[in-house]
Amino acid sequence: MWTYIFTGSGFWNPIWWLASFVIVAIFVYSFFGSEVKAKYSPDKVKPFLSGWDEVNKDAMQVKASNIYWGFTKAMSGYYRFLDRCHTGIINDYVVWFMAVMVITFIAFITA
């Protein structure tokens, strides 16, 4: 059985998954795939921005820095802590390493 694995609590067979996926895809396509498509026209896909001209393409896309803004804002306290830990200073890297070494040793001796 090259496709089957036991996962500890159950099993996984990607071929079954793929077969199921294909069946569902065919089923969905048979219902929704035969819709009549509208004729393409550039005017139909032109953005309408309340009468303003379309912005420059370079400025149109949401940039990576702005994606998940809400998530990072909500987690700002956590990220402030992480920023303080990630100083980029080599001395701090060594301090973290030594601190973990000492804590692990104390924990191991007392365990």
């Binding site: 694995i5 996962t7 500890g8 609590s9 159950g10 996984w12 990607p14």
Partner: peptide, 14 residues
């Protein structure tokens, strides 16, 4: 990645 992660999820769950 799914296959190995699933093994980890389901066995670590126990």
């Amino acid at each position: 990645g799914f296959a190995s992660k699933l093994m980890i999820y389901e066995s670590v769950y126990k």
